[in-house]
């Protein structure tokens, strides 16, 4: 079976220790977390976690079943197909000269990224998008020298209803 990234959305009780329980479960069962994002959900006292896990189909099945067993987990959904996926990323890029500055600004326009801070030697770019687009953007910026990179990890939502 092939290893792939799977996106799982879980609705959990928003209280101390829940993240630890979920993270601990992944470690204990040998599941690989690619990323995890947590924040409040539309329901009071419930948080939504978007977990990207790498593994084959059997692993994914176990991940979902084991997560369901946690009393603090209310709902689980596999979002791998048909979901809007976004990641927010802050990138600090070196500016060597005026030429490279204008090139970077042009790339930002093409990728609809925002420049949120700028000084003589560097600028900070805010980027939101799906992972492929982000990867392509980062590849272009690499040549200029990425000083710092801070990614939030993927968040996602099912399309339609």
């Amino acid at each position: 079976m092939v290893n792939e990234n799977h996106i799982i959305s879980t609705l959990v009780e928003n209280k101390p220790g829940v993240l630890q329980k979920i993270a601990g479960l992944f470690t204990r069962r040998g599941f690989n977390i690619e990323s995890i994002t947590v924040g409040e959900s539309e329901v009071e006292n419930l948080a939504r976690m978007i977990i990207v896990v790498n593994g084959d189909k059997k692993t994914l099945e176990q991940v979902i079943k084991q997560l369901s067993k946690l009393v603090d987990v209310i709902k689980i959904k596999n979002l791998t197909s048909n979901a809007v996926q976004r990641e927010l990323c802050l990138i600090k890029v070196n500016i060597a000269d005026a030429k490279s500055r204008s090139e970077i600004i042009q790339y930002c326009d093409i990728f609809r990224a925002k420049i949120v801070d700028i000084c003589e030697e560097s600028l900070i770019i805010e980027f939101t998008g799906d992972i492929e687009k982000l990867d392509a953007f980062l590849k272009l910026l690499k040549g200029y020298g990425i000083k710092k990179l801070s990614r939030t990890g993927l968040t996602a939502m099912s399309r339609g209803i």
Binding site: G17, Q20, K21, G24, R28, V71
Partner: peptide, 11 residues
């Protein structure tokens, strides 16, 4: 003890 027993308790 809550942290220590997390993997070995149901809740």
């Amino acid at each position: 003890i809550i942290g220590i027993t997390m993997p070995i308790t149901k809740h």
